[in-house]
Design a protein around this nucleic acid. Sequence first.
RNA 1: GUGGAUGUAGCUCAAUUGGUUAGAGCAUCGGGUUGUGGUCCCGAGGGUUAUGGGUUCGAGUCCCACCAUCCACCCCA
Length: 431
Amino acid sequence: MDFQAVKGTRDFYPAEMAVRNYLVDAWRRVSLRNGFEEFDGPVLEYLDLYRVKSGDEIVSQLFAFTDRGGRQLAMRPEMTPTLARMINARVNSLPRPIKWFCLSNVFRAENPQRGRSREFFQWNIDIIGSDQALADAEGVFVAVDLLAELGLASNDVVVRYSSRRLLAAVLTGLGLAADAIPAVLAVLDKRGKLPDPAFAEMLEKVVPAEDTRESIRKFLDLRQMESAEELAADLCILASEELRLALEDLRQFQQALRSFGIEAWCRYDTGIVRGLAYYTGIVYEIYDRSETLRALAGGGRYDNLLEVLGGPKIGATGFGMGDVVLGILLAEKGKLPDLASRLDCFVVTGEAALQDQVLQTVGALRRGGVATDFSPKARNLSKLLKDAAGRRARYAVIVRAESLAVKNLTTGEQIDVPAGEFLRQPKKFLA
RNA sequence: GUGGAUGUAGCUCAAUUGGUUAGAGCAUCGGGUUGUGGUCCCGAGGGUUAUGGGUUCGAGUCCCACCAUCCACCCCA
């Protein structure tokens, strides 16, 4: 039988593992320096956890099964429900705002293609317990901090954001019923992803009135914010309190982006709606500027989710970023550093009789925290140095009867050192 | 889940209209250049041509199925 990796999953050979670790290490480093704490949960959750949040249709898109005890389980397709469940369980004892992150593998039973696989690693950043747009902006800051950490600049990527709250307020002002709005949002999410005529047709289905559609288009074409009064006048609607509040929220968000010094990375874009229903405020997605790839990250405010999952109503905001698209972008931009593993020392000897001293030297160096290896085969010195170079060691330590020679394999310089002196303080010689 | 394209050593590719034991480079391993390195030279291993059927005297090449990958839909938490 010939086995291969399951469709949509990836094997991580050392070269790929190095890339994955490079990303995960950066995610963790950036999270910690932004004041977030790490958590994780189980890979398996009750299927209902996802049903409650997203409805039955989601079930066909995740890996689910019934265990021998008759429980309906699913492999986690995302971390937010797990996070909400964990927060809810201890909500009264956790100091707020809660700033947590996780680096977790998630599973989706969708058809794999470029930038999309069935198992991938996702970095999640969430701030729970703050209603301020400042928290949304802080999420964006963390994302930008990470991208910059990996060598990307504001001309490589863009954070496109908008406010679903404002959009909902406008739609309400245009006379749409509350229960009709989600369907309209779903259609608006398709704008720019569909050909214009197809989009127009879909919009016509959910918004029959032509003048209303015209106002929606006018709003979508806005590139900068006006006052609530001007906006209301432009769209021929009443400047409701909710419209004012939504606009004020968006302004605070933008002000925070400026204060954080990341406005050059960000662009207001009404085309950002986000597919799922639970977003309630600021939403954003991050794209490469050439827009040839899928979104690098997406997120926003979800003030109702904890309540939906049986907890109190607490404001929450956050984003998720996957490893697949990010890895592709960094590779394309040539931003992945040389990640091949390196040794500090490779210990060799030209005399087979000294093999025992080679092992003693190796042991001493390793105990001293020096990444060290050797060749298990006794060979001539020329071959052994070839081995050392092949392993990308920085230094070759040549064991001789009377002393050690430490050879810098980058410069070719070589010095003789008494063995005892070297082994007492090896790092002195390995600058 | 639907549609299209692709599938020959670990990787990149060869193989005349179907015609002998499917080749090369790189990589890997071994050896030599007789004890100081990534060069050079020699050699070896590795493929039931993704897999399973079928047509044919004969299939890497044609047909069908299946698996996987890529692309486009669906979806995107």
